[in-house]
Amino acid sequence: MSRLRVLKRVGLLAAIVIALILPLIAPDPSTTNLAVFTVMYIGLATSWNIMGGYTGYISLGHAAFFGFGAYSLGLLSNHLNVAPGYAPFLLVPVAGVISGLVAVLIGWIALRTRAATFVIVTIAFMFMGQLLAENLVKLTGGGAGLGFPYPQQWGGDFYNTPFYYAMLALAFLALATSWTIRRSKFGLGLLAIRDDEDKALAVGVPTRRFKLAAFTISAIPVGMIGAVYGYYVTYVYPQFVFDPLIGISMVLMVFLGGLGTLAGPVLGALLLEPAQLQFAYRFGASRLYLVFYAAVFLLVMLFLPRGVVPSVQELLQRRRQELASP
């Protein structure tokens, strides 16, 4: 095994161990809160990458599934009188399935379009979700928001810990799904669609079915993460879960880390989310952190159009070739 591969494996193992014991070594709520949001975005960006990164279809509407997931869990918990504590977590997969079904419906329509039209159609669906949540007042509470069960028994430093592990489990699920797809025949078909959809069709890739499958698979973890988020913040409002900024953050993290790679979305989330939270704390409601987001997006597009991971891989490959050549 090459030294680089050994280093990679050791690094990966260390990262997993740190992620698993983080609440034990840094139990203060400000750190675990930061960890909850960072891990949440690792899961979101990784899920988005299954569609956007592998097929090249840029969806700016994935926040819709986040919102549907959050509202699904809130409504189910309230209507089924689920006791606060660990029980609502059992409904998270149901929220994922509901988001998946919504994705089939949206994807069935949106995937009749390509390129910029697809981007616009997905944004439109996201805003339709927001409008539904605002206007179906009897069901969702409308602009007044929707409350979740509040686990009072988890007081003090421990409160964030179950949510951290729930988010971590979902991030692992998203990563495992992405890894499996990347190595499968299905994944190969998705990459072919990204490169040239017509050629992919010509060699036998069922492009329509595959795009819809990728769209749905990427929406399910997003819905589940949205559900855990809703439970974590205990109250959701339409504009904060059907939020275009959540969708844009996923895209930006994937572009920064590396589109279509496994490590790229993780790296993008690790770099951007803590920075974004710092900006949000410092500048509060001014939303000045959006300027930071815009600046990062501009810099990535100008200097790292393929993202950090592919650029570093290319650099290493060039170096290896230089060393190999006499």
Binding site: L188, L191, A192, D195, D196, A200, G260
Partner: peptide
């Protein structure tokens, strides 16, 4: 060929 896919793929 699919340009961003590897030779093997």
């Amino acid at each position: 060929l699919f340009p961003t896919m590897t030779v093997w793929e």
